[in-house]
Nucleic acid binder design. Sequence first.
DNA 1: TAGTCAATTAGATATTCGTCTAAATATCCG
DNA 2: CGGATATTTAGACGAATATCTAATTGACTA
Lengths: 103, 103
Amino acid sequence: MGLNNLFKALGDGTRREILRRLAKGDMAAGEIAAAFNLSWPTISHHLHVLKETGLVQVEKKGQYVIYSLNTTVFQDIAGWLFEMLGIITENHPDGKGGVKDGQ
Amino acid sequence: MGLNNLFKALGDGTRREILRRLAKGDMAAGEIAAAFNLSWPTISHHLHVLKETGLVQVEKKGQYVIYSLNTTVFQDIAGWLFEMLGIITENHPDGKGGVKDGQ
DNA sequence: TAGTCAATTAGATATTCGTCTAAATATCCG
DNA sequence: CGGATATTTAGACGAATATCTAATTGACTA
């Protein structure tokens, strides 16, 4: 769904924590909501954002809604990272100038 | 400065494009501003955000202000990525259940 | 068919964000 | 010093965001 929305989605700590929990295994919406000090609608909203950006997948199971992590999206982030690192190394082959890596 | 602000900073296309250009070499603020169809104050604002999150470094050179990429921050992103991937593989050792990787 | 549990939608509100114009600051040069 | 160039700061404004409470939808069960 685009790096813009992807990074925006990751820019919220609650959403990253949801992802971390989903990385350990699928969870129902209510199970997720119970883990936070936020209202259910708020969590539902975050889950909607995560779903829109493709970071999670949804499956209805009876009266429950099961959320699972979509690992493929991490490739987009990795892709962006490697692209940046590629440009850096291309333009600073000997590490001599420009980019400082200390503080 | 925290993953929150880091990801938020990366959630803007203009800022990512600034970073991409800086990856090719240091640039003066005006040189950067000239590359976009946005006002100088707007670019100055974005540069401020990037500086606050530690994504760029600033050096005053006479009347010019030279911006350069701070590559160390990419380690934070990579660190988060690897942490997530670690949790995933820990909890799905045989790739059998839970995480779907198709569409 | 009621009643209950699970989850989302609707609507409101305060805050943050990206952008602009106008003004201020800082540095150089003659 | 005085003017020109480079950049930031101030202030305003509309759009987007995170949150809440109340209401709604959907599904199971007795």
